[in-house]
Write a protein that binds this DNA or RNA. Structure first.
Length: 211
DNA sequence: GAATAGATTGTCT
DNA sequence: GACAATCTATTCT
């Protein structure tokens, strides 16, 4: 809605479509760590700094929903233009949010696995039914979608403009961690690829890595 | 802190 | 009819 309440850190303008188009999915996954995901709704504005991502690089990547050149209804967005949302339901009850990577026609996407709340933490807590200050608010793909109010409605949504967009985070060097992706054991050799990225030492990262 | 089971539904075989 | 890029409560050490 309106401008954020005083006391909240300022938000930069949305990252443009070029930001998503000019990077391979692996570089995009790295570069998204530290960016801020913003969602403006009637309930208010929420923003969280991305602290954990995973790259999915179909059709070769057997962990990707677009593996084997799969081009079904669910994964259509992965094949679409970069800088749009790929949202899917998993385990029948949680939504997961991805940023589609380029180039168009390559089914690549970056899963956002964890956020550090920046703005609207009270609203996030309300959506999650948790007390303010809970560390489990946004430390997982399903949790952050619930907290941010992201669901099926955002399938295919452009991410270079409100209401849902990415912005630059605070300046400063990020100590990046890197390791295998979570819960993709079914993908054979691909499960071992170090395509998960996180900010080292950040307490909001979902599955505790050895930093 | 670690391990386990149960929840629940759209999508594809 | 099986399964999934998960989360939570519960039950242990």
């Amino acid at each position: 809605m309106g401008s954020p309440p005083p006391g909240d850190p300022p938000l930069g303008p949305p990252l443009g479509a070029d930001f998503f188009a000019e990077r391979d999915v692996l570089r995009l996954a790295r570069d998204l760590v530290g960016k801020v995901l913003v969602h403006e709704t009637d309930e208010g504005t929420c923003a969280g700094r991305i602290v954990e991502t995973e790259a999915y690089r179909g059709p070769e990547d057997l962990a990707a929903h677009s593996s084997h050149g799969r081009r079904t209804g669910r994964v259509a967005a992965m094949w679409g233009p970069p800088g749009h949302a790929y949202v899917f339901l998993l385990y029948g009850m949680h939504w997961a949010f991805n940023v589609v990577a380029g180039p168009e026609g390559d089914p690549h996407a970056v899963l956002v696995r964890a956020l550090e709340p920046v703005i609207g933490e009270d609203l996030m807590a309300r959506r999650r039914g948790l007390a303010l200050g809970a560390r489990t608010l946004t430390n997982g793909p399903g949790k952050l979608c619930a907290a941010m109010g992201i669901d099926k409605r955002h399938y295919g949504a452009p991410l270079d403009r409100p209401p849902l967009y990415l912005a630059d985070g605070p300046r400063g060097r990020i100590r990046l961690g890197r390791g295998p992706r979570i819960n993709v054991d079914y993908a054979g050799d691909w499960a071992a690829r170090p395509w998960r990225f996180w900010e080292r030492g950040n307490p909001w990262v979902s599955v505790k890595p050895r930093d």
